[in-house]
Nucleic acid binder design. Sequence first.
DNA 1: GTAGTGACGATATTACGTATTGGTCACTAG
DNA 2: CTAGTGACCAATACGTAATATCGTCACTAC
Lengths: 206, 206
Amino acid sequence: MNDIAPTADAGQRGPTDHTIRDQIVTAAGQHFSRYGYGKTTVSDLAEAIGFSKAYIYKFFESKQAIGEAICSNTLAAISADVMASVAEGRTATDKLRRMFKVTVDSSCKLFFDDRKLYDIAAYSSLERWRSSTSHMERMFELLKQIVLEGRAAGEFERKTPLDETCRAIFGAMQSYINPVMLQHNLDRVPEAPNEIISLILRSLAP
Amino acid sequence: MNDIAPTADAGQRGPTDHTIRDQIVTAAGQHFSRYGYGKTTVSDLAEAIGFSKAYIYKFFESKQAIGEAICSNTLAAISADVMASVAEGRTATDKLRRMFKVTVDSSCKLFFDDRKLYDIAAYSSLERWRSSTSHMERMFELLKQIVLEGRAAGEFERKTPLDETCRAIFGAMQSYINPVMLQHNLDRVPEAPNEIISLILRSLAP
DNA sequence: GTAGTGACGATATTACGTATTGGTCACTAG
DNA sequence: CTAGTGACCAATACGTAATATCGTCACTAC
């Protein structure tokens, strides 16, 4: 019925209330960041906002849904960094480099500065939560835009189908843009991702 | 050549006895494959070959060393498949395609047909056991040879430093050649690795 | 109707004593 | 000397009972 929000915020409930839902999200952000997703109970969150646990479930249909909301915020912050940097790029080549550099840097920063939130992001990716898949879709669209721009400007080749090119680029970078895998490759940052980006750019040469 | 000694079989002990050590390895291969590394005890292996547990430690300095031996065998089998297929390739391009295709196919086959051994290989990679790192080094050398051959034949560009090129190729394929990561990407085999290989080949164009 | 809750069942998680296991060593048999 | 082992220790894994948590629902208060 009233699925007003085209924002893919699955797992939410009740009216898009401002204060309460935001309070929950805020409290969850703090608790998850400090104690981790697993060690935070729904009762903790309820207590933090001064209501009963049952009330939480008027706004979110599960604890996971709250986790997804937090994860969405985390990933949105990375998205924002990436978009901002890409916007400053002059050429498509520059934009592509920026896109992946910032993605990797932001993810690493999250890993070291807010490990608990990083773990949620990794778990989200592993379990293919919407928070992760839709973030990846957004990044994929951004990549498409950049490649398209590069093709239009004559910077990139045009023979390979656009979607295939983008899928391949994503696949090649996956070890460094997917939190689950990045964890195991931290020691090769930033050299390795740089070299892969260079390889990708060589492959895009007209 | 049959250079028996220089095989980097770390963690072994005592004389390079034939019968007993081989018996242990054989028994371990069967037990690990059936029950897994974790569920197999050193006593199980001892019992299987009719000796006491203590005797096992005359030949291997730890259970992990036995695990590495098994893992080495598993990876050597993949190596052999890869080498064989690469040898049949006519051009460097063909060889490169074969190298990664067989690596991915063999790894997937292992995953589905001998999951317990796959898990050991994944663990070995995660924990950076010698069995894994030296396998990767061998694969890296093979890749180098192929790229070198392609450069000599004029199939591949020669500007980028050889090592950088090879590191980048490995990095780009990592999600599909590293057992730890392949697990999470099985649903995109064989299309995704294929597309990445195509991208790599485009990047190698002179 | 709206805002909010206590109490409850089913499932997870913890805590903790017990049993196994990895690994060593002094020792025996020949 | 070589081939082989039982007994032993610290650490880990396991089983289980107690506890905590998730998520729901009938309910109250207004």
